[in-house]
């Protein structure tokens, strides 16, 4: 009956985001080596692996912060490998950061409105006199943000500066900021890092809602295995820059290579 149980059905739409043989070196260090995976429409895909496995580097390549040295990244058959971050965002890939990246002096609402920036067309001049298109655009954008405020239950914090908010709430605002882009894919880099159990449960609930209610595909980096196993449709396991396994959460729990990477082998 509950939404959680519904997750056990496998989700398999057409391929939405395809990562094909990407690699990235920093000087002599190989951060990511020949990694491929497909994110299907409507999936929650988790990337797991020990520290330094290359998870965040991989997200950075998808979102355009890093340029891969080789390999290709396709968003619905469109090559986005060498696109700038702003172009990737405009194409519908939003992300959150491991270390919260909000404007702490701005209100929750303003942070969300900023998330709409790539969707806005009015220029500096039009916005300054707030007339015609600029005004219509502002109202339409405010509507999107208000809907998100409702979705994430931030009504009472609308006009509060984000710097003054508790950590868990800031993470939630950051999710809202990413959603304000109206993405088709959202990349979440440790959305539950540093949270207590209650906050984690709330966040897991929101991620499921983002996925189910808003139809956004999710790429999730998370260390809490309980959460990963509960909410993911598909798991990709990295170790030292390589993909060592992928499959359903249940299969990954049994996979010897995964157990080895996490626990080490008997010598």
């Amino acid at each position: 009956m509950s939404a959680l149980e519904a997750r056990t059905e496998s989700v398999g739409g057409p391929v939405q985001l395809s990562v094909a043989g990407v690699a990235k070196r920093f000087g002599g260090v190989t951060a990511v080596q020949d990694i491929s995976f497909d994110l299907r429409k409507g999936q929650i895909l988790s990337i797991i692996g020990p520290n330094g496995a290359g998870k965040t580097s991989l997200l950075n390549m998808i979102s355009g912060f890093y340029k891969p040295d080789s390999g290709r990244i396709l968003l619905e058959d469109r090559d986005i490998t060498r696109r700038k971050p702003s172009e990737v965002a405009a194409l519908g890939i939003a992300r959150t950061f491991q270390n919260i990246a909000l404007f702490s002096g701005l209100t929750v609402l303003d942070n969300l409105m900023l998330g709409r920036h790539v969707r806005m067309r009015a220029g500096v001049f039009g916005s300054a006199i707030y007339w015609g298109m600029a005004q219509r655009e502002e109202i339409a954008n405010r509507e999107v943000c208000e809907e998100l405020i409702d979705f994430l239950k931030l009504q009472d914090l609308r006009k509060q500066q984000t710097g003054a908010l508790a950590y868990g709430l800031r993470k939630r605002v950051e999710l809202g900021r990413a959603l304000a882009l109206e993405p088709s894919v959202i990349l979440l880099d440790e959305p539950m890092g540093g949270m207590n159990q209650d906050e984690k449960e709330d966040m897991a609930r929101y991620i499921l809602d983002v996925n189910q209610e808003r139809g956004v595909s999710v790429v999730l980096i998370e260390h809490d295995m309980g959460v990963v196993m509960d909410i993911s449709d598909h798991v990709v396991v990295l170790d030292r820059g390589r993909k060592i396994a992928e499959g359903t959460p249940a299969a990954m729990q049994r996979e010897p290579a995964v157990i080895e990477a996490y626990l080490g082998t008997k010598s």
Binding site: M1, A3, D209, Q212, E213
Partner: peptide, 9 residues
């Protein structure tokens, strides 16, 4: 209706 999409009671 939020979150009730998959309920079929």
């Amino acid at each position: 209706p939020r979150g009730l999409g998959s309920y079929d009671d």
